[in-house]
Design a binder for these strands. Structure first.
Lengths: 192, 192
DNA sequence: CTTGATTGTCTAGCGATGCTAGGATCGAAT
DNA sequence: ATTCGATCCTAGCATCGCTAGACAATCAAG
């Protein structure tokens, strides 16, 4: 039976290779450049192999999104843990979030802009997504203010960060002044 | 020379028909369904006719976006003009914005999600886009608070609304509680 | 009025996309 | 050694955005 297990290991490794390659390609040349042909060529297999791992391109995007969500949760917790006091902690969270979005645009797109076929804000939402939101909640819950539901507050704060991240990257907002926007957001939204 | 003028009128009418049809199709079945073939069939011309009016699909999206920006500016001014006092005015603006995004998802996508080849936040930004931002600024400028640049404040408030609008529609936020999010945003961000 | 040129439109086709059917090949088990 | 099942690839489908070249209608000049 060990032969079978080895094959399963190799198969799992190939699946990771597909996801990693898709992500790499997307970060290098954008998601439009991630075609099934190019992806297949890079992993040195034929196209149909992709479809033996994933239902289609959507699921590949979804896999990148899950990977990214886990990394984002780590990044956010790392950013907040180094800060002193609620004010600085929230500011660090906001900067960390925007920094992550800026440094990993393809992953961010897979998470929040593209359709990866994932369920959000539901019971069957994948664990990494729930955990990324939890990382936000851990920091933001304590500054929601009296009478305001921590979850709702986190949603609003997150939405604001998301708006700044996407509008900035799409050229809808002037690229400078990011720090001032963060300051404004933190000082006004958070109850310290 | 009148013959020539008539032809120009007819040509302009056909261009409006293209934009209106693209928008209609996008609202009905989403932008993915707006293919050059389908669009050409609906206006009862062949594909190449589209390319005698627009450089490509991108420019058609851009045309829909400009049309939408003008409508959005009107909608926002209508919403704010009916409200009494700064607090209610800002809340009405926020509700009007989210309402517009919800009721015209395809137009909203053309404006802020898709690439319509338009310049944003620059000198050569088309007038309708500037005016839509101006409509926001007119209302939000007076609640920016002391020492905060009205333009910057408007950008942040707008980004927050944009985040709520996009995340809600993509199913990333629970669909209910919109009103509570608006209240929170207005009460915290605006200085009354 | 006839001719030639210009304008307008269409048919047909290019390269590329996501995805799939069917056959070939290879290894494990009898 | 032979069967059988899993694995993988070649080839192809329908569709996409976009364009070249043929054709017809229209206009200006002789």
């Amino acid at each position: 039976m060990s032969v079978h297990e080895r094959k399963q290991r190799e198969r799992a490794a190939r699946e990771r290779l597909i996801v990693a390659t898709a992500r790499e390609l997307a970060e290098q040349q954008g998601w439009d450049a991630v075609t099934t042909r190019r992806l297949a060529e890079r992993i040195e297999y034929s196209q149909p192999v992709l479809y033996s791992h994933f239902r289609g391109k959507r699921e590949i995007i979804g896999a990148v999104a899950l990977e990214g969500a886990a990394e984002m949760a780590v990044a956010l917790r790392a950013a907040t843990s180094a800060a002193d006091g609620p004010r600085e902690r929230v500011a660090a969270l906001a900067r960390g979030y925007l920094h992550f979005a800026e440094r990993n645009p393809a992953v961010y797109d897979a998470l929040f802009q593209l359709d990866g076929g994932l369920a959000y804000a539901q019971e069957d939402t994948p664990e990494p997504l729930k955990d990324a939101f939890a990382a936000l909640l851990e920091c933001l819950g304590e500054v929601a203010g009296d009478g305001v539901h921590p979850g709702l507050f986190t949603e609003v704060f997150w939405a604001s960060l998301h708006g700044i991240a996407t509008l900035s990257r799409a050229g809808r907002l002037p690229p400078q002044d990011t720090e001032q926007r963060v300051e404004l957001l933190v000082d006004r939204l958070a109850v310290l």
